[in-house]
Structure formats: structure tokens, C-alpha cells
Amino acid sequence: MGGLDGRIRTYFGSDEHPSSSWMQLHPVDQRWISRIALAGGDDPGVLSYDALRKLGGDDRRRRLRALEDWYKAWPYVRTKQVQAVEDHLAQLPEPQPDEDDDLLDVPVITGPPGTGKTTLMKRAAVRALCTAAWDRRLRGTAETACDELVRPDWRPVIFHSTDGNPHVKTFFSHLCDELSVPATKDPQVAFQKAALRHGVQYVFIDEVQMINFDGQYGMYLHNALKALQNMNLRVVLAGHNVRHLLVDRKTVAQNATQTQSIARWAFQDLERYGHETKADITEWRALLRGLETHVRLAGHEPGEPVFSDQFEEHLWVSTLGYVNAVAALVTGACLAATRTPGQRITSEIIDAIRLNERVARGRISRLEGWRAGRFRWSTNALTPA
């Protein structure tokens, strides 16, 4: 195992020699994996309010900063809906860029904003990197040495977040940047050559809703994505409500492109967590149980079901089941509780944490109705008086 951190080793699965596989990766990819897997830093442990007050100003600030980093990096909780998407990605055939494989369907992780798509996408990319490194190690040193004559900087996975509405040249220029290669006058050709040279197998593209697929650039970009597939690269997309981007187009050519995409895009949905059925509540509590393992407050015992039991309804009514909102709420509540003598989460602390406008709108009336027994889980509304 060597000195490889356990949080990184997790992504290598059942790899018997993860440290050796880790050494197959380019330093750029090692740093990227470390930023994701080790986000939050080391466990800061529990320090009571009185002990915190006795610290000097610099030490207290360092302690509070460590707690902020720790809480902002909430653990990645594999609830059933997350596992379903991960299982789909894991069951896809491995990309073989050097072989003449059949064209592969494009997985598209989609759903409303705030449902954890980017978090899942990044961890899928990390897992793909670690699996590729494992496979490379298994091929043996002789083949790897020969391979390095052609691919001096092996970079099997690219993760790119779309910025604005790019046209094809901009898009491929950004992909070239990910590999630190010049884009030249024709960035698409430059990237295709670089992808073969550096052994690219996966291209993860986040925030695809930023692309105007109804416009001319969008049509060209559709074709560009298909060109990547034709190279037998595994393309994985993620974005808000992507199905709604594929509506009828203005021209015959655009409609033809849309038809090809719909035939090749395999949608995987992430939704906000429900709270109407028994299955909904079980799933919601599983998410909260994962989050409460991260609590470092002197007022709560280790493993205490503070979120999944004491405040699970309260948190749902406050956030409407959006995972990004609950992470923000729990983070704020834990940091606020740290500065109180009892260091315990309370209803008053939870209600004082500000949230994004989507869930903040109507939050006070929802909570009042819930406390009065007039909240309808099926409609997120109040029962008429």
C-alpha cells in the first residue's frame, strides 16, 4: 500500500497494488485526484467551546479555518440514485482508442440544478483515471516503456467544464489546454492528434447546458462530439435538464443532428430527494446519515443521528430535498454551532442559515405549516386552512 492515502486508495477498488498504479499517473492527474479525494484536509477532531476560547488568536483562527475546510468537503454519499448512475457508468464497455470498436452510447448525467451532478461526474472521472492506471500497470513494464516512446505524457482522462456557449474551435482549444498542447489553427485536428499521442480514453464534459444546441455552433459541436466517439473515446456528458435542449430545430440539418444525438445519448437522471413514500424517506435518511459522520461538535456523541433522526423532516422542508442546499445548510449549521457554548445543532441555528433563492422562497411559510401539521409532502405546499 505504501504511503498512499486511504481516501485515494478507495478509488482503486480491488487493485492489489494501488501505490504502483498511482505511480503510472501523470503528476497533473495525481494533483487533480488529490484535490478531490483529499478535499477538506485531515480530520480536525473535536474541540469544545471552552477549549477553543482558550486558544491564542492565531491558533483559534487556524482551528476555525480547518473546520470550515472540513465541513465544506462533505463526504460523498452513495445513495441508491447515485449508485444507479455509477453502476451504469461502470457497466459500460471500456474504451479502446487503438481498436475499431463499435460506436458507444454517450452517458448523459442530467437533472435539475443542485442535485449533485458535478460531484458525481468528478468522482466518476477520478475512478476512470485510477482504473486506467491499474490497467496500465497490469500491461507490464516492457509494454509501458515501449508505449512511452509514443506517449511521453500519458493522460487517459480529460475533465472539462463548459464555459459560456463555445463554438467548435473554442471547445477544442480548451480540450487542448487540458493536455497542455498548442491548439494550432485547427484545434479539433490538434486535439485529435494529441488524444492519440497521449492515450486519452475518456472525455468528461460538464455544464453542457451552457451550449446553445439550437444554434449553428451547437449543431457543429454535436458533430464534433460525434467525431470524438468515432475515435472510440468514451464521452460522458453532464448538465441541467439536458433533455430539454434536444427539442425540434429550425432547419432540416439541425433536426438530423438532434435525431442522431437522441439515438446515441443514454440519459441518467439525478433528482432532488423526495419525502412522500417510505422509500423516499429511507433514501433521504441514508443521505443524512452519511453527512452526520462528518460532524465534529462536542455537544454530539460520535455517530449520534442528529440529522437523520432529530432534524430529518426539518432539513427536508428547509431544502426541499436538493442535495446542494442540504450540504450548504448542514455546513452552516455545524460552523454556527461550533461558536456556541453547547456546540449542539438546534432548530434556531438551522433556521438562521441562509440558503439559495430557490429553496429560500417560501421557506418560512413551509416551516410554519410543517410545525402546525399543515405541510403536504406531495406538493411541497401547505394544506388550505
Rank of each mutant, 00 (worst) to 15 (best):
H17K: 06
R289K: 08
T141M: 08
R123F: 02
R344W: 00
D98N: 10
A263T: 14
D280R: 00
I364G: 09
Y76K: 11
R127D: 07
L47A: 06
N165C: 03
W370D: 03
V106C: 09
L237D: 04
R339T: 15
R339H: 02
A124H: 06
Q24N: 05
R272W: 06
L270P: 09
P302D: 12
L287A: 04
L38G: 05
D43A: 00
I350T: 00
T115Q: 05
P44E: 00
P75V: 13
T118L: 12
A253K: 13
D177T: 10
V235L: 05
L67F: 13
I364P: 07
W316H: 05
T379A: 12
I8Y: 07
F12P: 00
G373C: 03
Q258V: 15
G373L: 03
A51V: 07
L129R: 10
L52Q: 14
R344N: 02
N241F: 12
K169W: 06
R272A: 04
V181I: 15
V242D: 08
S378W: 11
S308P: 07
A256K: 08
T251F: 07
K250Q: 14
L291P: 05
A195C: 08
A194Q: 09
E283A: 04
H26D: 15
A337Q: 09
A39C: 06
K185W: 04
T257W: 09
F311G: 05
P97E: 11
G6C: 09
I36V: 14
A90Y: 09
Y49E: 10
G114I: 12
T346M: 03
S34G: 00
N356P: 04
A142W: 09
D5L: 05
K193I: 12
P113E: 02
G56C: 14
E178H: 07
T131C: 01
I36E: 09
V157C: 02
I262C: 11
N212I: 03
L221S: 01
Y217H: 14
R7C: 01
I33A: 04
M231Q: 12
Q81S: 13
V242W: 02
V189E: 15
A333M: 06
G41V: 02
R272P: 06
M219Y: 03
D50A: 12
K122W: 11
V247L: 10
L320N: 13
R123S: 13
A132N: 06
D177S: 10
A266S: 15
S34E: 15
T383V: 13
Q260G: 11
L297Q: 06
M121Q: 14
T79W: 01
T119K: 00
W316D: 07
H88I: 10
I353Q: 07
Q188M: 15
N255I: 12
G13V: 02
P302R: 04
D69F: 01
